[in-house]
Design a protein around this nucleic acid. Structure first.
Lengths: 352, 352
DNA sequence: TTGTACGCGTTATCAA
DNA sequence: TTGATAACGCGTACAA
């Protein structure tokens, strides 16, 4: 003989959080079939005027929202783009990300962020996760490309992959939306030369990255182009603020200052300037500094930092369009370089 | 008689992008049923040793990844947290976001970002989108709460919502993880007083926000507490860099400077300091400045900015834990305020 | 230890 | 203009 416990166990579980309404719920209340609800909500014109209104009313009353998972499963398309970002709290990336998010939304896509840390050890494992089904395309923003994605691309499979912000080598087989890094560096150093600086050192980027090599190449070519003899003074390396600080300390310790420093990015320039100034070195009088990226704080520094403006808005626009075209099967034209811009501020002194 | 065109039309379409492999594919190749594959991949121990290995091998060879949409649909759980952020390119938010992303991953969740711009017109429409089914919880990071979410919360429905970074009023019915904004402002202003400044003005936050009111209250209370007579000098309002600039220009035009300014956040302090310095005003000698937030650039400014450090890491940790506990049905304890910290740098001068 | 059957919510195809 | 049916890929009772 069953006791009450057993009986109560058979009662339907009171749903913890009431299940959100589905098209079936709407259908029942509106007195139509689920397919009609689906069509109506999708904007299909072949629906009775009155039926449509009834459905819309019920849907609103119920607070219906479409279940994206069910839709994605059925449509074999999610409307989600995976964006791989090394560091969200780095203004260079967060600023790009903001643009990407906006433009992707305009194109009807959502963004999923893949935050790949600095240490690549953990990265591949996490990326493996991120790469799991249900995304329509991938946007890379750094040199790093997770091994499974690289394999995927190499295998010529279908998931579209585009890289922007960070330059792409010609041999990788990945579509790249980028500026001419080497030419931009050349422009920055040329400006330093125009300002009358002769001995121009370089604070290099992180070793092993294509972007570091290209910016260094531009620096070297500008010096060669000016017939400058001392052309190999590299005072440090790394893209972080602390790397700039370290370089400054070395300079101070050696007590031998170049006329100017071309930094591989703005962050390292911040560290360099901040540490030099703390030691009483004046910028640009004692030493001029130029950066690369044009982060939003570069105009706030005292002195404001001369730098190369990365056209993040244009890069976001072009790369998303490229990616979406790839997804839609349109062959996008590889459109050469995005134009960059030299932003002249006070950290480099005045020309002539 | 059919021509060749017709015949070729009947050939199976060469799949554009080869469909990604499913457990059914693995099952076929491994000679088992799909359910066995599912169990094996899920780590179910009741699987033959040899079977398990065969399945794992085939899965790896095929490059199998689980389809998250199918899984979410089946499980009625997506492992996705919606994070509503006003401005990704604002260091205060991007820094928090980085922490959130990391901690959420540790807890097995992914982040979907809802980038709600500054203009609330567009916002609700977009939020309506974002709010669509398939998320397990919502994290608010600003004062703003989209109307449909607010309705949802008011209706006492089940989708968990937590707010952090921005303070939550007691009447909203939303769980809040926050610092004691008023006490923190009090601390900052008290430090200015300790440094010997008497006439301390306030650059207020954006009007209408709870956070602005609390920080202003703290400023006022500190002055009252010190028996300071002039206690109502508000030199501007707004959280943006440009708002600080505007306040500086007004100060310069009026040629009447307070001893110190307590800014409602670091960004406006940047604008204020930068514009004042450009006009030759010395900080802290002519005028001292304190901020609020401790963005990563505040230590780089010359002079480095005294400010309140928002414990973003702790807030991210606590709010995600809170949210996940809510999702898992555990009643999380509302744990009072997260401790804040006054960071003393050179922009406020030296005490005594 | 493994296989069968079913349902999650949606949309597309076909028939009415 | 509408309804019935099937399928997207997965996980899980239940049966074997």
């Amino acid at each position: 003989m069953a006791d009450y416990d057993d009986i109560s166990r058979n009662l339907p579980e009171k749903p913890q959080g009431r299940r959100s309404p589905t098209i079936a719920d709407i259908a029942k209340l509106a007195g139509v079939s689920p397919s009609t609800v689906s069509r109506s909500l999708a904007g299909n014109p072949r629906i009775g005027k009155e039926t449509r209104k009834r459905i819309a009313d019920v849907a609103r009353d119920l607070g219906y929202t479409v279940n994206r998972h069910a839709r994605s499963l059925r449509m074999q398309k999610s409307g989600i783009l995976l964006v791989l970002i090394p560091d969200i709290a780095n203004l260079n990336y967060s600023d790009l990300l903001m643009q990407i998010d906006r433009i992707a939304h305009e194109r009807g896509y959502d963004i999923r962020i893949g935050h790949i840390g600095v240490d690549t050890g953990r990265v591949d494992r996490q990326a493996e996760d991120l790469f799991t089904g249900g995304i329509d395309g991938i946007l890379l923003t750094s040199d790093y490309c997770p091994s499974n994605i690289a394999r995927h691309v190499a295998a010529g499979e279908a998931l579209p992959v585009v890289r922007t912000l960070s330059p792409t080598g010609t041999d990788e087989g990945i579509a790249g939306v980028q500026i001419d890094e080497e030419a931009a560096a050349f422009d920055a150093v040329s400006h330093l030369l125009r300002c009358g600086h002769r001995r121009i050192a370089h604070l290099a980027g992180s070793p092993g990255l294509l972007v570091s090599r290209l910016r260094m190449d531009g620096w070297r070519r500008a010096l060669e182009n000016a017939g400058e003899p001392i052309s190999d003074e590299i005072i440090g390396e790394g893209f972080a603020v602390e790397d700039g600080r370290r370089a400054a300390r070395a300079l101070i310790a050696g007590n031998d200052y170049p006329d100017a420093v071309f930094c591989a990015n703005d962050l390292s320039a911040y560290g360099l300037m901040s540490e030099l100034q703390a030691d009483g070195v004046r910028i640009p009088e004692d030493i001029a500094v130029a950066g690369f990226d044009d982060l939003s704080f570069s105009s706030l520094f005292s002195p404001p930092l001369t730098t190369i403006r990365l056209p993040r808005r244009d890069m976001a626009e072009a790369s998303i369009r490229y990616l979406v075209d790839l997804i839609d099967g349109k062959d996008a034209p590889s459109s050469g370089y995005i134009p960059h811009q030299l932003v002249i501020r006070k950290s480099t002194g005045s020309s002539q």
